[in-house]
């Protein structure tokens, strides 16, 4: 255990990449989830079809393949290379955004129809209906499944080690394992602990947001949302 300080500091050097990719990936995921999720419910057929192709295309192919495609095939097609960390964020966001789109769609559809009719009766504009009535209620339902999705995204950052991004998994396997081979058990337990703590941070933030979003509607977290958070459905 005398090398513990070394292990900690080498792994910690990978933290900026892991955390950066996670935060960037989450930001892109949120944007794409809402864009594609709303597009899935659009009255216009072409818009629905395009977002459906995006969602099914990215959910149907492997994330590792998407990563390699963006890193090795795309530069040939477009003629320039992407800065690794941005490429990583792009893949994480595109992939998880496709899953998030279904979360957004499902949550919007779960808002009782009477709410929509009420907004219509008050002659609110379509934008007002969506942003003032439907979405504030839908967002509360979205938070627990998004919590799970973001933890999936955090875990997915480990695949960035394939494309030479020095995040914590790569720090462990490329720097620590070759040098301290007899102590691989400690190295990996420590690495797992890093991910565990990061995922607890995500959960803590999401619980906080859920309480805030629910309080805005003047209610506690819904039964359904609580159950989803406990069973952890993907």
């Amino acid at each position: 255990m005398d090398n513990l300080a070394t292990f900690l500091s080498v792994l910690a050097q990978g933290l900026p990449e892991t955390v950066g990719a996670t935060v960037g990936g989450i930001a892109l995921t949120i944007v794409l989830s809402f864009a594609a999720g709303l597009a899935l419910l659009s009255p216009s057929r072409p818009v629905r079809v395009i977002s459906r192709i995006y969602v099914e295309g990215l959910r149907g192919t492997s994330e590792v393949v998407q990563l390699f495609w963006i890193f090795f095939a795309l530069p040939v097609l477009v003629g320039f290379e992407i800065v690794p960390i941005w490429g990583g964020i792009l893949v994480l966001g595109l992939n998880h955004g496709a899953y998030g789109a279904e979360i957004v769609r499902g949550a919007i559809q779960s808002v009782p129809r009477a709410q929509y009719e009420g907004a219509l009766a008050l002659s609110l504009s379509p934008a007002q209906r969506m942003f003032r009535v439907i979405l504030p209620q839908a967002v509360v339902e979205m938070i627990p499944p998004f919590n799970n999705l973001f933890i999936q995204l955090l875990k997915s950052t480990s695949i960035l080690s394939f494309v030479f991004i020095s995040e914590i998994t790569r720090q462990a396997t490329q720097i620590l394992v070759p040098r301290f081979n007899p102590q691989v058990l400690q190295i990996f337990l420590l690495l797992l602990l890093f991910y565990l703590v990061l995922s607890l941070v995500i959960t803590a933030v999401m619980r906080f947001l859920e309480r805030k979003a629910a309080a805005r509607l003047g209610r506690g977290p819904s039964e359904r949302a609580r159950r989803a958070a406990v069973t952890g459905a993907v």
Binding site: I151, K155, S156, T157, S158, I159, S161, T169, A172, T173, V177, F188, L191, L192, Y195, L196, S199, L200
Partner: peptide
């Protein structure tokens, strides 16, 4: 709550 890839390496 930990990555499959890390478990594979483990």
């Amino acid at each position: 709550s930990t990555p499959l890839l890390v478990q594979i390496f483990f």
